[in-house]
Amino acid sequence: MSTKGKSRRSFLAESVGGLNAAWVLANYPGILAAQEKVQKAAKGGKLPQLTYFTEAQAAEIEAVAAQIIPTDETPGAREAHCVYFIDRALSSFARRSQPVYTQGLVDLQAKTQELYPNAAKFSALTGEQQIKVLTAIEKTPFFNTVRTHTVIGFFSRPVHGGNQGKVGFQLIAYNDSLNHKAPFGYYDAQLQSTGKA
């Protein structure tokens, strides 16, 4: 292929830090079960059950995710339920990222206390303070892993636990109907209507 080189698959495989096909194979029933749970919970209007994190851990990770894709006038990682996507990932196909999270949560607490000695935990900080802490750790494997998982949760199909209400698709104006007709965008529409580029 071109210098773009990598296949689209390896592109993603690299970006997710090595969640590989073998894991999915090994955990496929788990993934499907997780999907069912998510769907049931969504139907009942209840939050899904955590499968890996404790409530306290989930609150910390959710706070991090909510800084990666913040909520402003439109929904962010919190409303998309990215933390539930990550929770399920860690108990299924992303199991081998568990140590990164375990150590990362310890380091997050340490960095929080280093910068804000009076703070109980990261999620208790103000938004501004949280950004300071995350900026200090943004080059770490922990932060990059949470970033990758948050983004994947936000933009994957809702069946995987994140992107609830398709808020991720809405942010980027992505129509997931998988059936489109030309004109597709502004410039081809213009060319079609005026005959001029």
Binding site: L12, I68, S156
Partner: peptide, 22 residues
């Protein structure tokens, strides 16, 4: 695709997280 855009698809100097990323 949505995942490609979100993970690595923005222009090179775009922020990788936070309000600027969004």
């Amino acid at each position: 695709t949505p995942l490609e855009l979100g993970l690595e698809g923005l222009s090179p100097d775009a922020p990788r997280w936070g309000a600027g990323y969004k």
